[in-house]
C-alpha cells in the first residue's frame, strides 16, 4: 500500500485542465487535415477532399493527402445538433460497438484515464443502456448489430443523445454502412479514431457546457 501512495505522490497531478484550459496533446492525423500547398486536390480514398477543403466527417486519417494537406491539430471538430441542459451536472454513457476495428472503443475508454479523468466533469460509463443518457456508437453498422443497437436505443430514457464516434459510424468510411442510415445521430465526432480530447469536447457540446 505504501508503494502505491509514494508512487502517486511522485507522479503528481497529471490530469488535463481541458476543457477549462487548452488540450495538452492531440493525435495529429486524428484531427482534420487542412490545405497547405499544391494546385490540385490530392488523392483521397474516401473522397473527403474537394476544392481545397477536407470533409472531417469522411476523413479516415490515412494521411495520403500529405504533403498537400497537414493535420490541423484542432480537436473541436465535433458537431452537435442538440444541447441538453438537463445533462449539465451528470451524464452517463453507454458505448456500443456495431462493427469497429477496436480503436474507437479504446479511445472512448481512454476518457477514464487519469490524464482525462472524465469523472471530474460529471461524465461516467454505465453498463446498461437503461441507465444511460448518451449512446456512443462506434464502427460501421453490421447487419447483425442493427437490432442490438435499436434495442439499446429503445431502452434509454429521455432525454437521450446519440453520438456517432469516428469516421466509420459517421460515414461508413471504407468498410461498410454509416450508423445514420438506421438511427438519427445527434452528435458527430470525427476522426479515425477521434482523439480522446475530441470525444470529451463533443460530450461537453451535447450538454451545452463550454
Amino acid at each position: 500500500m505504501k508503494a502505491w501512495i509514494l508512487r502517486s505522490f511522485r507522479k503528481g497531478i497529471i490530469t488535463s485542465k481541458f476543457p477549462g484550459g487548452r488540450n495538452e496533446n492531440a493525435s495529429p492525423w486524428s484531427t482534420p487535415p487542412v490545405y497547405r500547398k499544391g494546385d490540385q486536390d490530392p488523392y483521397c480514398p474516401v473522397g473527403a477532399i474537394s476544392q481545397g477543403k477536407a470533409d472531417a466527417n469522411r476523413c479516415i486519417s490515412c494521411g495520403l493527402c500529405y504533403p498537400n494537406y497537414e493535420p490541423s491539430m484542432d480537436i473541436h471538430g465535433s458537431v452537435s445538433s442538440v444541447s441538453v441542459p438537463a445533462l449539465k451536472k451528470s451524464i452517463r454513457i453507454y458505448q456500443i460497438d456495431v462493427g469497429s476495428c477496436g480503436a474507437c472503443n479504446l479511445e472512448i475508454g481512454a476518457l477514464a484515464n487519469p490524464q482525462y479523468d472524465m469523472a471530474r466533469l460529471g461524465i461516467s460509463f454505465t453498463n446498461t443502456p437503461r441507465h444511460a443518457d448518451a449512446l456512443l456508437v462506434s464502427g460501421v453498422l453490421t447487419d447483425n448489430m442493427r437490432e442490438p443497437l435499436m434495442r439499446a436505443y429503445e431502452a434509454m430514457a429521455e432525454p437521450r443523445v446519440v453520438f456517432a464516434v469516428g469516421a466509420c459510424a459517421i460515414s461508413g468510411s471504407l468498410l461498410g454502412k454509416a450508423v445514420s442510415d438506421t438511427l438519427r445521430i445527434d452528435v458527430t465526432v470525427p476522426g479515425c479514431p477521434p482523439d480522446p480530447f475530441t470525444i470529451m469536447d463533443a460530450v461537453q457540446k451535447a450538454r451545452g457546457v463550454k
Binding site: I96, D97, G102, T126
Partner: peptide
C-alpha cells in the same frame, strides 16, 4: 452481444 464490461460486441 452488447453488454457493459466488454470492450467489443
Amino acid at each position: 452481444p452488447s453488454s457493459g464490461g466488454m470492450v467489443e460486441s
